[in-house]
Design a protein around this nucleic acid. Structure first.
Lengths: 153, 153
DNA sequence: CTGTATCCTTAAAGATACTG
DNA sequence: CAGTATCTTTAAGGATACAG
């Protein structure tokens, strides 16, 4: 599919994978620790870790007998997406107080993520616009063209 | 699971659901348009739309015979998460140019999302910290305690 | 047009036992 | 400790036909 989101979901778009990445952000590095933390079956965890290493989101460090799984730069780059989802979950899905705080090194809570234009203005779901980019294929262009035509009605 | 991310994933954590929300952000409103845009089976789309309406992420407008699915405030609040994933996909998963641009109303590309501390300093995967929040249960607290102990080794 | 109802096939997940 | 190998069960998805 000609869409960045679909490609992102292809890499981290299932339940367990994102939770593994979250645990890795927390500092979990060992097979058994992931397994215990997530309550995931061993064979599933094994497959997911393998996929994440193949996708260069995790790297296998330590010894072969006692590996450590650590986030690569690509994996660390998922932080905004992860935080955005956690903040949304806190704001809209959880009744009551957030179970996990995201902070800087000094323990200060991070700010809510906001989409901003180059001028710094906050963009929301009502003001955001989408358009075909330079990498759009014919189908994507046709899709947006039809969408625009429908709006003009 | 005592985690905001898990709850977020429970609501929008499968492949199709997030793509439907993305289409809704684009401005797609009709059953047949979702179906055509995504290439999803009708029964699956039906089930997903129903779930999204039940979760108050979409609302059913228009007539009963010809409904329009529109994002609620809760659905629109997914914009940062969606944009974060798209930006990550563009930066790390796609070779070449981005297929879709996210812009403000004037057509200016939005800035990359960044996690920031209250002081405005950018926080990345290396400097971020996590800690149990007020809503943490015993298990979550024990988890972070064990994690801290492991780091002290 | 917007679904619902069925059937079928495949894939994912869990449990468990075993290996280096 | 860190997996692999198997087996079984369940759920998800797709195709298609039908209904309001």
């Amino acid at each position: 599919m000609n869409c960045s989101l679909a490609r992102a979901l292809g890499a981290v778009g299932d339940w367990w994978t994102l939770l593994i990445v979250r645990d890795a952000m927390f500092g979990v590095k060992r097979f058994s620790d992931f397994q215990q933390s997530l309550g995931i079956a061993r064979n599933i965890l094994s497959a997911r870790l393998e996929r994440l290493v193949a996708a260069d989101i995790l790297s296998r460090q330590g010894t072969a007998a006692r590996p450590l799984y650590e986030l690569t730069a690509k994996g660390q780059a998922l932080l905004p997406a992860l935080v955005a989802l956690m903040q949304w979950g806190d704001a809209w899905e959880v009744n009551g107080a957030p179970p996990v705080l995201v902070t800087d090194a000094a323990g200060r809570k991070v700010k809510p993520l906001e989409v901003r234009s180059p001028s710094g203005a906050v963009i929301n779901g009502a003001t955001v616009q989408f358009s075909p980019g330079p990498g759009a294929d014919r189908r994507t262009r046709a899709f947006f063209k039809a969408l625009q035509a429908a709006k003009d009605d």
